[in-house]
Amino acid sequence: MARQQSAPVTKTASQAPRWEMGVSQHRLVGAFATYFMLVIGAVILMIPFFWMLSTSLKTLDEVNTWPITWIPSEWIWQNYIDVFQRIPFARFLMNSIMLATGGIVGSIISCSLPGFGFARLRFPGRSFLFFVMLTTLMMPAWVVIVPHFMMFNTIGWLDTFLPIVVPSFFGNAFYIFLFRQYFLGIPKELEDAARVDGCSTFRIFWQIFLPMSLPVIATVAVFAFFYYWNDLLYPLVYFRSQHNFPVSLGMRMFQTAEFNVIHYPRMMAAALMSLIPCILVFSFAQRLFIQGVVITGVEK
């Protein structure tokens, strides 16, 4: 995909971006309006979580009662203890953390490299291969799951983490695409200057592009974490022992064989607890967002 350089903005910064938005004269009014919208949106988005919290502290009896109570009449913290006692929830958490860690590391390594290749290096068939890569996103997982199951069964990987972690080291089209788009936005002058200084392509990637890419690395890390954390289908099909289950799958044990009967308080307690690592990861990644841009700004 050769594109023309039809730049609407001619002034390209040789400096790295900094954490700073435009200056506003009517900052006060703007800030107030911003806050107003942010708070309204946040309240709407948080209602469901409040409801989850409230349900997790109820008795099963109260969940099923009309009219719905938002504040439980009695706070049943025991539901949270039950989650650990009735299913090996701690084990599930551990498994999810391992799967997600492997998935993040694998995704960042195996996606930043092809992302750079597709964005900054010319080779025969680049556009074609890029499109082929995108096509892997276009088939529902149901189409490939049986062949994958057979393959991992043949090599004896069923009931291990390998069928989930190892493929993450072989690139994911979505993350590669994200890296590529980000790398395409980095000014060419930086790369050219480094070449003049005798940098190898890998060093340009490693020492110039990656440090400037912390926002996108953080984004991919967040996406990958949540993907592996929430993934249900692959663990379901590949794992045969309960002690390998991740949280996403283990949590569903609070459903029962009885028709329409789900222990919602315990399930919500488990769901909320499984969200805690997600919140931690997101906060950490956010820090990376800001820090990253500041560091590169200082360095250059």
Partner: peptide
Amino acid sequence: REAIEGLLFILPWLVGY
């Protein structure tokens, strides 16, 4: 050379594909 490097960079994905 650039073409070879390009293919090397996308190798993780290509093998996985």
